[in-house]
Simulated assay, not measured.
Amino acid sequence: MSSSHSPAHNPPIHGPPIHGRGAQSGDPSRRFGLAAREAEGDWRDVQKLVDGPVDKLRTTVTEEHPKSIINFNASPDIVFDRSINAYRGCEHGCIYCFARPSHAYHDLSPGLDFEMKLFAKPDAARLLRETLAKPSYRPAPIAMGTNTDPYQPIEARYRITRQVLEVCLEARHPVTITTKSDRVLRDLDLLGEMARHGLVAVGISVTSLDPRLSGLLEPRAASPAKRLAALGALAGAGVPAHVSVAPVIPAITDEYIEAILAEAAARGIRHATWIIIRLPHEVAPLFREWLETHFPDRAGKVMATIRDIRGGRDNDPEFFTRMRPRGVWADLFRKRFRLAMKRLGMGGPDIRLDCGQFRRPSRDGQLSLL
């Protein structure tokens, strides 16, 4: 790996609420039994004399160069079998993000490190081209935005997502995109052309309609109004788009289910999904910490409802049931969503992308004649 910035050391934070970040602490994970690092003696006082006080939680980006870019999976709980993640970590800072535990694999905190110590893969488009050029490769929709957002702020500088889409358009390879950013509209030229070939579908998740609440839950994501406007722009350009009411958080965001659907429908969106909050591994304690910081009056109620939905646990990690909330509360949310969809004339996502146009590219950027 080569770093494009000098990583700043950000010790765990305890005290007043941290503004502009989702996580309220940066304690490293102990799940993998990795050696702990701790400053001894007066080192931190000496560091302040040398470096000055740490007055800002800085975002750093490290460039990494993997040998492959498509991740294949055989999970029975998701509808796609392959994905591309141009980045690791996500500056949007969504406190509920189920991808946070992935930072623990690298001895980094799923808390503040996940949203501050980011990784970019500038070779993604080249690696994708090499994979698609292999005679053994068989096309199926590639999912983008499954682990971290492909349109998080650093995409404006790196443009890795755009480069990947350019390769997919050239090779006529289908793609699905999930994002919380209106930055997706910067690639509307590519998305529009891909849509004309039946190669793309875009989902934008909207958690609430309250910008203040969104600022606490997803501090660096686009505002709800911008996401809804982006949905309207995609629909107007003929790009298949749907709204994802996700995640639904009991006693925090569930009051917005019907209103989000209505706002999306008013902008020409005819398809929608919903997902209840999931709290795998380190996400559960981070989310409880967030609740105690911002909603101490209802923290107990929120967690009790989540445990009811997850069979008495903070999270259900089991295949076949982890994506299927159950119990009275889950049934209530499901019924509300279905009734609102019926009233608005909406349905589930109709993602039927065309794999038959695939044209195998050559490694040097020229399309193969075969």
Rank of each mutant, 00 (worst) to 15 (best):
F333V: 15
K342R: 15
R267D: 02
L108W: 03
G356N: 11
P361G: 02
D27R: 10
E282V: 05
R100T: 05
F114I: 01
K226D: 15
T321W: 07
V46Q: 13
F119D: 03
R298Q: 12
D45H: 06
D364M: 03
I95V: 15
A330I: 09
R183H: 13
S368E: 13
F319I: 00
D314A: 02
K335L: 15
V245I: 08
V239N: 02
L216V: 06
D308I: 01
L369R: 13
L108I: 04
Y151N: 11
R157D: 14
S29G: 10
A133N: 01
A124H: 01
S29A: 14
L261K: 05
R31S: 07
R30Y: 05
W290T: 05
P17Y: 13
E130W: 09
F320G: 01
D364I: 04
R326P: 00
H19K: 14
A284F: 06
G312K: 03
P11Y: 04
S68H: 12
D149M: 14
P174K: 11
I260K: 03
G41I: 05
P135C: 08
G33E: 08
I95H: 00
V245K: 00
T305I: 15
V61M: 01
E289F: 00
L228Y: 02
K180Q: 12
V164F: 11
Y158I: 01
L118F: 03
Y105I: 00
E170H: 13
V206T: 14
P17T: 13
T273D: 01
T146H: 10
L165F: 11
I276E: 10
A221R: 10
A39H: 13
S181P: 07
D81T: 09
A284R: 10
A39C: 12
I276N: 08
P76I: 05
A265L: 01
A222W: 06
